[in-house]
Design a protein around this nucleic acid. Sequence first.
DNA 1: AGAATAGTTTAAAATCATTCTAAATTAATT
DNA 2: AATTAATTTAGAATGATTTTAAACTATTCT
Lengths: 152, 152
Amino acid sequence: MSTQNLEIMMNQVDAKLSDVHIIQILKDAGLRPTRQRIFIGGLLFGQEHRHVSADILHIQISTLGQKMALATIYNCLHQFHKAGLLKQVNAVKDVIMFDTNLDYHHHFLNVDTGELTDIDESTVSIGGVPSLPDGFEAESMELIIRVKQLNN
Amino acid sequence: MSTQNLEIMMNQVDAKLSDVHIIQILKDAGLRPTRQRIFIGGLLFGQEHRHVSADILHIQISTLGQKMALATIYNCLHQFHKAGLLKQVNAVKDVIMFDTNLDYHHHFLNVDTGELTDIDESTVSIGGVPSLPDGFEAESMELIIRVKQLNN
DNA sequence: AGAATAGTTTAAAATCATTCTAAATTAATT
DNA sequence: AATTAATTTAGAATGATTTTAAACTATTCT
Ligand SMILES: [Mn+2]
Ligand SMILES: [Mn+2]
Ligand SMILES: [Zn+2]
Ligand SMILES: [Zn+2]
């Protein structure tokens, strides 16, 4: 992980929700408010939107002095996703990204770093989408713009 | 692999390019026309567009009575991609899909099967894409519509 | 053609993200 | 406090993909 990413992570600790608020979110989602879920919830909810992998979260949690099994982080992210608290993004090779932005939106994908950046739905207009084959329904739709840094 | 997929694969053997034509494609791409590349080229080029993983190609090749190491298929697909003969699609979880359709186009993704279906660019209109941050350029853009079968 | 060279294929091992297992721990309930 | 059910965890397993290095093959060079 780059120093830059670390700084971004550290600055995101402001505007943090209180534990009681996070516990309420978890309970409302039918999830027991365990120490681990509350901690991860504090890093993901009520903050600026984030796109995280299990691994990057694990690094952040370690950096913050907490000890947590990577398997727990996977469990937690999948449970949050199942509960509708996170979205999953499968646009990055070899890694599952979880997205705290629950609104319908699109992404820039930095092909060098794997970093995702939100594109608000309201700015983009998509038309002419063909109708689906019979017996199928659309579950979601996403525009992905792969970008790279100009090397010069 | 389903029986249905196998049938689709088998029916795709018509309109096959001659070996000399495939050899020319390979030479033009700066690739030595080896037995393996010619065979795979025969399955992918000059046919109806396909979306294949290394694994599904390996199964088809085995079914056709050929013996080829899975590593060779990975090598070949990556070399074809590097040579601009294939596109890579990273929308399916846990698997690299290679696309013989080199035109700018979009995809339906069957979330149950991982199957990709082309959406022609000409039918879709995308507007209002925000400009990129300074120093970045767009490499490609793709609309992915995740679809699932209605269960009733 | 035959020898030399460079590139390719392959089986097997390694890698790496993710998932599974089963035992220890913790939250919720009685 | 005791019981029950869910969760966490270390470590093993999985599975797609990549790497290794030795055998093989296409190409180039006498
Ligand atoms: Mn992926
Ligand atoms: Mn994987
Ligand atoms: Zn997002
Ligand atoms: Zn396609």
